[in-house]
Write a protein that binds this DNA or RNA. Structure first.
Length: 485
RNA sequence: GUCCCCAUCGUCUAGCCCGGUCCAGGACACCACCCUUUCACGGUGGAUACGGGGGUUCAAAUCCCCCUGGGGACGCCA
């Protein structure tokens, strides 16, 4: 084995299905710190195998966000490297080839079961209190039948043939040895009927082909790891080392989610959180520097990082402490950084340009700009002096309506004024609110004032995360001033 | 429901592996006081935690078991 074979190689493998996620940055940070501690490589791989949900705009945002945080990768889709391509959608031939290998080796089989059958199967299993999972119906299909159905062009998937007895063990670097009974493992789909691989296949194949030595990922993957271990065994490959980081949590301790927390890195950037403050704060999640030191750089972190130092309790992502962290970094800024930050991030040319059509005709002197448009640059607003609850509506009704709205906004694919307008008009009609009640209320919540530029354009410019944040913030405010009975 | 992971102040955590130095340390938030024309920063002090029950031991936050609680996974999503 040559020296390069021993080189530490880790990866971050985000799926480009939406805004760049704070959890991605969190896992990226620990991968980065670990790799750099040992002079290893940090690889960025885009896992865009979900044809339905992958968005090309999302990938660019992920790259931009990780760069903003200073987590620069050594190999990735934009800069290439010796093990490319680094975008899974460009590697489908590789996955098909590997699925064929497993088929030949007798570790996989073709399955023709329909989605309807699978759904019904799961329903029955749950009804009877049985563990859900594929019943391995197609395992027993004869070769002749398989060939015939394939020749007839019948759609099918390729499943992994799990061992039915014994146990699968692996060492989690943060937890020690973990053990799973094989007969409980599902015959995982490896290749979907659209010819694309599932996460399990693509991930294992790529990690091997890209010579990944340590898989550092979130805790939610623990229960899939035995399947991955078995895949490595089926291919006859050596395993990487595994380490699962605790999951970031909402205040109620559930897995961090956009419904309960801002999770978009774009949001934190817009909110004026400094990248080094966010990174430092993330470094405090599940890990500590030691000696009661809380303020440190990535460089300092990577000197000290060890798997054994990981605290397994799921850390609550606390905006208040993040804000404190940001303050300590802000106060240390020099003059030029202060000026350039405001100019490039807060009053950036692109943002000002987006604002121009909304604000210009309402101004007669430039001095009015700041006073009229503060809400375009701030976060939480002050609702104390506004009468937001429409006449004839109860706080409960308003709260319910806003809850529905947040859900709807979340599902909106295109965040542009016409789409936002269509969605909101529809909701308004469905719940039979008067336009004035609905729009004025929303305007006040989004802007903190009764007068502002056109509502939908304003929401579009503010961004999904900010709008959602303000609605949520207002609902909290509402609950605090009117104790719900 | 089934399997798996986890468990120290409200929150982030130190201590736990190698039991005594811990009537548990630091930080955020909170309260009080000081500084101060205001606010903020800063300083000082305060309140607040080993989930419960059994063991083991001279001794347990630290080791073992049970319970409870929390979380995750169970998709042709990742």
């Amino acid at each position: 084995m040559s020296a390069t074979d021993n080189k530490v190689r880790v990866r971050i493998a985000p799926s480009p299905t939406g805004d760049p996620h704070v959890g991605t940055a969190y896992i990226a940070l620990f991968n980065y710190a670990f790799a750099k501690k040992y002079g290893g490589d940090f690889i960025l791989r885009i896992e865009d195998t979900d044809q339905v949900r992958a968005k090309s705009s999302s990938e660019a945002l992920i790259l931009e966000s990780l760069r903003w945080l200073g987590l620069e990768w050594d190999e990735g889709p934009d800069k290439g490297g010796p093990y490319g391509p680094y975008r899974q959608s460009e590697r489908t031939a590789i996955y098909r080839e590997h699925a064929e290998i497993l088929l030949k080796k007798g570790h996989a089989y073709r399955c023709f079961c329909s989605n309807d059958r699978l759904t019904e199967l799961r329903r029955q299993q749950r009804l009877q209190g049985l563990p859900t999972g594929y019943d391995r119906f197609c395992r027993s299909l004869g070769e002749g039948e398989v060939q015939a159905r394939m020749a007839a062009g019948e759609g099918h998937v390729i499943r992994l043939m799990m061992p039915t007895e014994g146990v699968t063990k692996f060492v989690d670097e943060a937890r020690g040895e973990l053990e799973f009974e094989n007969h409980r493992l599902d015959d995982q789909v490896l290749l979907k009927s659209d010819g694309f691989p599932t996460y399990h296949l693509a991930n294992v194949v790529d990690d091997r082909l890209m010579r990944i030595t340590h898989v550092i990922r979130a805790e939610e993957w623990i229960s899939s790891t035995p399947k991955h271990v078995i895949l490595y065994q089926a291919f006859g490959w050596p395993q990487p080392k595994w380490c699962h980081m605790p999951l970031l949590r909402n205040a109620d301790r559930s897995k961090i989610s956009k419904r309960k927390n801002p999770v978009s890195l774009s949001y934190y950037r817009r909110a004026g959180i400094l990248p080094e403050a966010l990174i430092n704060f993330l470094g405090l999640m599940g890990w500590s520097f030691g000696n009661d030191v809380e303020v440190f750089t990535v460089k300092q972190m990577m000197e000290k990082f060890e798997f054994a130092g990981i605290n397994l309790g799921g850390p609550v992502f606390d905006l208040v402490k993040l804000t404190w962290m940001n303050q300590t970094y802000m106060h240390k800024m020099d003059d030029s950084r202060f000026v350039s930050y405001l100019r490039d991030e807060i009053f950036s040319p692109s943002y000002l340009k987006a604002l121009k059509p909304l604000v210009l005709e309402r101004m007669s002197r430039f001095e009015q700009f700041v006073d009229h448009n503060g809400f375009f640059f701030s976060g939480a607003l002050d609702y104390k002096n506004l009468e937001i609850i429409p006449k004839g509506k109860t706080p409960e009704e308003l709260s319910l309506m806003l809850g529905q709205l947040v859900e709807l906004l979340d599902e909106l694919y295109d965040w542009h004024a016409p789409q936002i307008q269509a969605l909101i008009e529809k909701h308004k009609d469905e719940i039979k609110w008067k336009p004035k009640d609905y729009f004025l209320t929303l305007r006040m919540i989004a802007t903190g004032r009764k007068d502002s530029p056109p509502l939908f354009d304003t929401l579009a410019v503010l961004g999904r995360e900010m709008v959602r944040f303000r609605i949520r913030d207002y609902v909290n405010h509402l609950a605090s001033v009117t104790p719900l009975s």
